[in-house]
């Protein structure tokens, strides 16, 4: 019998994997993928809570999170492209100053 805690543990593990990616990787694009993993982990927890508490609110929240994630990725990748035009690099080690 698969209970709520099984889904929550998968969600927690996926969230920490995403966080490890953000800390470990030096490429901005892969760091963004780590952020996506973290958002997805939160989505999984919300859907699981929604199913086990008999309430639709969690699923509506996931719908909004997916929308915000799509907008966030579009803006973030546009920022990365703009940065790349200035610096010819997407490594975080090369982007240490605030001045363009």
């Amino acid at each position: 019998m698969i209970g709520l805690e099984h889904y929550l543990i998968v969600s927690a593990l996926l969230f920490s994997l995403g966080m490890m990616g953000v800390i470990l990787r030096r490429n901005l694009i892969v760091i963004y993928m780590g952020l996506e993993l973290m958002l997805n982990a939160a989505n999984l927890a919300l859907v699981a809570f929604s199913r086990f508490n008999n309430s639709m609110d969690g699923q509506v929240m996931v719908f909004f999170v997916i929308t915000v994630a799509a907008a966030e990725v579009a803006v973030g990748l546009a920022l990365i492209v703009a940065l790349y035009r200035k610096r010819q690099s997407t490594e975080v080690a090369d982007l240490t100053t605030l001045k363009l």
Partner: peptide, 24 residues
């Protein structure tokens, strides 16, 4: 993070007695 969250999930018995019931 993983250890902390999983520990708290296991100790709090969060899914105790909850049945999957919502048909989405």
């Amino acid at each position: 993070v993983g250890g902390m969250v999983i520990q708290s999930i296991l100790r709090s018995n969060v899914g105790q007695g909850l049945k999957p019931q919502l048909e989405g």
